[in-house]
Design a protein around this nucleic acid. Structure first.
Lengths: 250, 250
DNA sequence: TTCGCCATACTACCATACTAGTTGCATCGA
DNA sequence: TCGATGCAACTAGTATGGTAGTATGGCGAA
């Protein structure tokens, strides 16, 4: 009897979803979110039957959600044995950052070269303003939502939805780390400052500057990775050393 | 009674796969390959039952393969209506190229900055040599395999397997176009020349040069896109104009 | 002849049943 | 006491049945 799963079932995220949406999608989103937010912890076992019972659905849609989760690299399905939330892999995190950096820099560059439509710029400025309102109340959760919206608006601003899909996919690997490091992560104010720089460079149509601003912004995030490995060793995969981080920063 | 599907069932790709591999994976790979190679044509209807009967398996693994295919953007599942091979979207093709370019350029750059291990360089040179042997016999199929191996070796050479996964994902959108344009695509010899330039730049540790060589290489591919739309209008999605292509080339 | 309704034959989605493989524990033997 | 073997309790994978929603073709009315 898994009380965590029952709690998830009672939570708003599950309840508030439209009935029309397929069960497997709702399950996928709930489980994904729970893994990212560490409610389902790395290494934890998840069985199809257990989840099915907790959510009062049959095993089939659960199974289909599991398949999607395993493709996203969030759980590992071992046939005839069990399914497990994968531990955080430093290598996976850094590889995710590599991909994200490559794509987001290309997006920023394209935005600077081509320019953005006025309504997109308006939206970006609006998002910046709303982000600033999160600083004083230390509203991390709200800021993360707005942060996601900001990067999303950039990708859609240059009409690259496939790029956004990739960014979303690799983000999940990074987000678990982010949740671990909420207290001692880069201050919100600093991130907003970087967002502002990015928008300014795009408006100035300065390709190089936009590129560099985005690179700085994305590299900010994992200052604390080796520290986290020391503090939460059970969350991480293996004995991957901090040498990896040195590598990644060139 | 769908004869195309029955033919697929008889083909080597299905038969030669190990029995141990899950049915849904084998189905996924066979169907994916068939869509890329245009044996299953854009717009064609595919029903779970039809495929299940043709391959003599139950509907469930077929369904799971369909879900994966729809996530890869190769088929569209419309509940209670049917599943269809998606038509080629020029926008999707160009967005795929955008992502691929961003990631592969980052890979090439990283390779030039850090350098590659000797055994990786040996492998690359070996692949180049084998590619050259495809020129005279006009062995397109073999070349495409070696081309994929080349790009894969680069990604793994800089230890970015996640990057390769992304490249593989977006490639499928581009590959259907490639199959359409086999006769009048860029000559193999020219592509090999570009591969050689890339390797040379990496060996010279020339970051800028490697980046530019890779960009030139990837932009070569879609010279013929508007032409293809004219020749095979039924394969393409809508009335997206050639203006998109101008945009994408800056 | 044309338009609208209804029966029918599909579809994908979900539930349930069954199979096959793995793991761990208990029991039996040395 | 320790070790090996067999059985029981899991697991995920596959098969099959039932349900609800959608398209279509034919029939009747205007």
């Amino acid at each position: 009897m898994n009380t965590t799963l029952q709690a998830l079932h009672r939570e708003a995220l599950w309840q508030e979803m439209p009935e029309t949406e397929p069960v497997r999608q709702r399950l996928y989103r709930v489980l994904r979110q729970s893994i990212i937010q560490m409610q389902l912890t790395p290494g934890q076992a998840l069985s199809e039957k257990e989840v099915a019972d907790a959510f009062a659905v049959s095993r089939q849609p659960v199974r289909e959600a599991f398949i999607r989760l395993s493709e996203a690299g969030l759980i590992e399905v071992r046939p005839q044995r069990g399914s497990y939330v994968v531990k955080i892999s430093q290598r996976a995190v850094l590889e995710a950052r590599f991909v994200r950096e490559a794509v987001e820099i290309a997006v920023a560059r394209q935005a600077a070269v081509r320019g953005l439509a006025p309504e997109v710029l308006t939206e970006l400025h609006d998002l910046l303003e709303r982000q600033r309102q999160c600083v004083a109340p230390h509203d991390y959760a709200r800021f993360y939502q707005l942060d996601e919206a900001f990067h999303r608006a950039l990708s859609f601003g240059v009409q690259q939805s496939a790029a956004w899909k990739v960014i979303e996919d690799v983000r999940v690997q990074m987000d678990r780390v982010r949740y671990l490091s909420v207290p001692d992560s880069t201050p919100i104010a600093r991130l907003i400052e970087q967002h502002t720089e990015i928008v300014a460079a795009i408006e100035a149509r300065d390709e190089r500057c936009a590129e560099q601003a985005m690179r700085r912004h994305l590299r900010e995030i994992f200052i604390s990775l080796p520290d986290l490995v020391r503090r939460f060793p059970e969350m991480f995969d293996a004995q991957e050393t901090a040498a990896l981080i040195e590598e990644a920063n060139q």
